[in-house]
Computed example of a mutant assay.
Amino acid sequence: MQFLGKHNGSFDFIFVDADKDNYINYHKRLIDLVRIGGLIGYDNTLWNGAVVAPPDAPLRKYVRYYKDFVLELNKALAADPRIEICQLPVGDGITLCRRIS
């Protein structure tokens, strides 16, 4: 992963719309690539409303499967002191993370 060290702090904006089960791994790698003051955007962070649905809610199989990964990401972002976050309730949700340290 030479790319990561070589380009740390090089990006102003990164947008992630990928496999939800790896969002945490993307965040761990991308936080170093975005400059302080830069943004990382994560798509689908409300995941069809499933993140606030009761456990017995009737959800499609794929929505139920990825729900826990999206919840894990949301909790990790909220606890990450290197960023400030803003979650936008547009579509399936977009979370913007501004790197502050």
Rank of each mutant, 00 (worst) to 15 (best):
T45S: 00
Y62H: 09
A57V: 14
T45A: 03
D12E: 08
P81T: 14
A76T: 13
K20C: 10
I14R: 05
L4N: 12
A18V: 13
M1Y: 00
R35P: 01
N25V: 11
G93M: 09
D43P: 02
K20M: 10
E72W: 00
P54R: 15
N25R: 15
D43N: 07
L39G: 01
N22W: 11
D92K: 07
L71W: 02
I31N: 06
R64N: 08
A53Y: 01
L73P: 00
S101T: 12
Y62A: 11
D17M: 10
D68W: 04
N8K: 14
L4G: 11
R82S: 04
A76H: 08
F11W: 08
I40F: 03
A18D: 08
P54G: 15
L46A: 04
L30F: 07
L39I: 15
G41V: 10
L73R: 03
L88I: 12
C86Y: 12
G91N: 13
D43F: 03
D17T: 15
F11N: 04
L30K: 09
P54Y: 02
R98F: 06
I100W: 14
P55C: 12
P55A: 13
N44I: 06
L4Y: 00
A79G: 05
F13I: 15
N44V: 09
V51Q: 09
L59H: 02
K75I: 05
V63G: 06
G49C: 13
D56E: 13
R29W: 00
L73T: 05
D80F: 04
D19W: 07
L96F: 14
L88G: 02
K67C: 10
A76C: 02
V63N: 06
V16C: 04
N44M: 04
D12P: 03
L46G: 03
T45R: 00
V90C: 08
D32N: 12
Y65W: 07
F3I: 13
N48M: 09
N74T: 11
R64C: 06
P89A: 05
P54D: 12
A18P: 07
R29L: 08
I14G: 03
L4I: 12
Y23C: 04
D21E: 11
T45F: 00
P58Q: 13
P81S: 13
V16F: 00
L46D: 04
Y62V: 10
Y23L: 07
I24R: 08
A78Q: 15
F3P: 07
R98L: 03
F15S: 11
I24K: 12
K61P: 09
L96N: 11
L33W: 00
F69H: 05
G93F: 06
V51D: 04
L59C: 10
S10I: 13
L77T: 05
D32V: 06
F69I: 03
W47Y: 00
D32C: 13
L73G: 02
G5P: 08
K67E: 09
T45Y: 01
I40S: 01
I100V: 14
D68E: 06
P81R: 15
K67V: 07
N44Y: 00
I36Y: 12
R60V: 12
K61E: 08
V52E: 07
K61W: 10
P55Y: 01
A50N: 07
P89Y: 08
L59T: 04
I85Y: 12
L59M: 08
Y42K: 01
F11C: 10
V70Y: 01
N74G: 04
G38I: 14
I31E: 11
K28A: 06
G91E: 13
N48H: 06
L30Y: 02
K6A: 14
D56H: 10
W47N: 02
